[in-house]
């Protein structure tokens, strides 16, 4: 059982160990959906939402598997549950709030294969967080992901009219930007003390 205070968990997952910039989780959407500020923030919202839901599910599964003494089923059941949770959430939102669905809709299927979601589930069990701690951890991770995505989108919008050399365009430029952002986030290290 882990006894880290909640604010420390939040700061850690959001800033100090930012999922994108320190753990490199969720790089695909980070590079893919960060061209426009609006889509970036909506994607961040969708990811945070799914993170929280799947983190709660993962907590339940882990408790169940520990009770059954079957740790070897952890990975396979996490991935299965996350995939089906995303589907359920998608159906639920479609039924309950068509407006929200229009905003998040196209991102939801993309999220299933987002490693950050599975990352939250795995890290929280590795660290032995309780239910409330897991919840805070997931919210923090989602907030950190959204923050990184929005910052990146801001940088890329600024660069849209710039004329970099031909060979820097595309993935290479995005990587350099991400590296600079990652250096900035290193300044947050030590906040958890």
């Amino acid at each position: 059982m882990n006894e880290d205070p909640l604010w420390q968990i939040f700061l850690n997952s959001c800033l100090v160990n930012n999922f994108v910039l320190a753990y490199f989780l969720g790089i695909c959407p980070f590079l893919g959906v960060s061209a426009k500020l609006g889509t970036a923030s909506r994607m961040g919202g969708a990811v945070t939402f799914v993170m929280v839901v799947s983190s709660m599910c993962a907590f339940g599964i882990n408790a169940l598997l520990t009770a059954m003494d079957a740790p070897y089923l952890k990975l396979i059941s996490f991935i299965a549950v996350i995939a089906s949770t995303v589907q359920l959430v998608e159906m639920f939102i479609k039924k309950m709030s068509p407006a929200l669905f229009r905003a998040l809709g196209i991102f939801l299927p993309l999220i299933t294969t987002n490693c950050a979601i599975l990352g939250v589930a795995l890290f929280q069990t590795n660290k032995g967080y309780g239910f409330l701690q897991s919840l805070v951890f997931a919210v923090g991770a989602g907030a950190g992901f959204t923050l990184a995505l929005i910052l990146m989108a801001g940088l890329r919008e600024k660069l849209e009219l710039a004329r970099p050399p031909e060979m820097v365009k595309g993935a290479a430029l995005a990587m350099i930007l991400a590296g600079l952002l990652s250096i900035c986030f290193m300044g947050f290290a030590g906040l958890g003390n």
Partner: peptide, 24 residues
């Protein structure tokens, strides 16, 4: 810095630049 997270981004960017340059 190279073994820290930013180093990963920079090294990959460096390799991508190298391959782009070659392709060009």
């Amino acid at each position: 810095v190279m073994v820290l997270p930013p180093g990963g981004f920079f090294t990959l960017a460096g390799w991508l630049l190298f391959f782009n340059w070659r392709a060009q």
